[in-house]
Design a protein around this nucleic acid. Sequence first.
DNA 1: TTGTAGGCGTTATCAT
DNA 2: ATGATAACGCCTACAA
Lengths: 368, 368
Amino acid sequence: MDVRCARRLTRPGRGGPAAGSPMWCVLTSKRITLVDVALDAGVSRATASMVLRDAGHISVSTRKRVRASMQALGYVYHRGAASLRSSRTMTVGLVVPDLSNHFMAEMTIGLEAVLAEHGILTLTTNTFEDPARQHLLLRALFERQVDGIIVVPALGTEESFADYLAGAGIPAVISTRAIDDDRATYVGIDNVRGGELAATHLLRHGCRTFAYLGGMPGLRPRQDRLRGVRRALAPVGGARVVTHRSGPATGAWSRDLAERLFATAPLPDAVVCHNDSVAFGVYRALRDVVPEAVGTVRIVSFDDVDEAALWEPPMSSVAANGREVGLQAARALLRRIDDPTTQVEHVLLAPELVIRRSCGCPDDSLSD
Amino acid sequence: MDVRCARRLTRPGRGGPAAGSPMWCVLTSKRITLVDVALDAGVSRATASMVLRDAGHISVSTRKRVRASMQALGYVYHRGAASLRSSRTMTVGLVVPDLSNHFMAEMTIGLEAVLAEHGILTLTTNTFEDPARQHLLLRALFERQVDGIIVVPALGTEESFADYLAGAGIPAVISTRAIDDDRATYVGIDNVRGGELAATHLLRHGCRTFAYLGGMPGLRPRQDRLRGVRRALAPVGGARVVTHRSGPATGAWSRDLAERLFATAPLPDAVVCHNDSVAFGVYRALRDVVPEAVGTVRIVSFDDVDEAALWEPPMSSVAANGREVGLQAARALLRRIDDPTTQVEHVLLAPELVIRRSCGCPDDSLSD
DNA sequence: TTGTAGGCGTTATCAT
DNA sequence: ATGATAACGCCTACAA
């Protein structure tokens, strides 16, 4: 008996397994391939392949026949085999330092959504901010012949990383954390502008002494935001950044820091926090060590996570739309995959200051 | 000239590109394969393949020679081709409804870490709680021949889903949201126990009227937590759940709801929130409509995200360790991939109540 | 210890 | 419009 003639084996007449059930393959553990379909439909592999991909010119009747066979046999496309031949895997790699960071999770979702729209799946990898791990993961991605790659460089990523990436010869986009390299597209938010936005608003409230808390020193986002703050302060006499401390952008860290900081030194007029978590930690510390200051210090942070609006006081925050960054990054990558000769791009998304009460506004009234 | 003899083309003597540079492949766009390596090292494809995988018995000298050639030519393993032959892709699929949910992001990280440890990469897909999308993504995963799959079923997933999954014949684990099916391993937290923990503690504070807010009605976690609460209340005379409302477990939703709820009805003694976000929204509503109640209503939530400890008042929360769930799920999957005949498991992780002040404890003193 | 000869499931290039 | 045939890059017997 010809095993290839699967249909006869799989169709036990009325009352058998539902049409399209992969029962047969489960029972015999023999994979249904295109030749099974072709045989069943009475055409050649080539023809079957073409109807599969809607390629070439196939008569309606054959097309129908082949589709019916696919259905009946429970055929599932073997993209791996196809990739071997077509050298497109319809898979891209994503390398992020920390998926539990809300911004990056949002970015990932945005990315994944537009890629999936195009039939492309995402290999997500988390580096835990470890460059060595990042290198390993990148290699693993290359071994899988990803069609493109999106990476948010880990803290401590060396210069050579850019070479490695460029050397791989596949479309790449760097996101969120810019690096000094012009061979890969970059997509991120305009952090300098964000810093300016925050500082300018605080200045209007009459603030003159500023603190900047949180964010890792080696990373561009912190440098840029701080630069933005300073740029806004520069033209205003007496306005300056009196303290800035770098560190992991977490509430646990900032709480500890702020407890020590505010117990000894005089409070600044304003503190701009690297992100909302940092601000949350600062508030906790304030409440615990100098509760009377909670209503006085003006605070602005970055990201505008959902909790910001619920915080007491409602947090003024520079919104960084991670979802949008993801969308844009994916689209930029798609453009380069489509045509690798296209110009390398630098996409900078404009942030927006969401004014609530932590900055000292009585409510949402003070327009910007 | 034989293109296969790559070494001569790629080694322009001293001063050329760094050893290991994939310069050649970039210039000619011809992929370096195992036969290039074999030719360069003067061995057969098979031998080269074996040193690649540390299989068989190869003499040290050949092994060294082959490795050197791989290095020199900038060879990168083509896992897709290998998969075609070995039928293992070293790739698993992950299907989650919402990566921006902190618990799921944590789970994903945990998962991905242990899988990566084993050389397995994760195809992450987000369903946005859409069963149709979930079906599509699942199929895309199958087409890529994933070695296994981990899924957190989307809201509205139908019964047939279990059949589809089982029919695919690949190792699968369901996580976080149990479904009524015994063909796939399940890994999640013990939500009934969690509910009991929360309610029991609140009972000790003298609470008798309870509200349960948030969580979607069709999902097991909500049903289980509520069941746990009720089970704890049952033996106590006069204690009961006076209101329970279902809905998306977000602060925006709960804030709206609570504003309406607490403006009209009398406040319950205690409210247990489906997760921290819900609790945050409730507090915002309380502050906005009945500020005097902020210190009186006792609140316990689930998840214990970082913000919970920083909240005012510090939030008492039933910790759901997403990272750990991810680890366990990955390990369970690995076991089934290793040996598909192993028993299907049901792993239930014990939650832990983290007591802070929102429940009414003066500080961390009231032991449980 | 090493080499030879298929084959994995698909797509591409010819013919017909 | 359809069919035969040769890749794609690797792995697995089995033979030497």
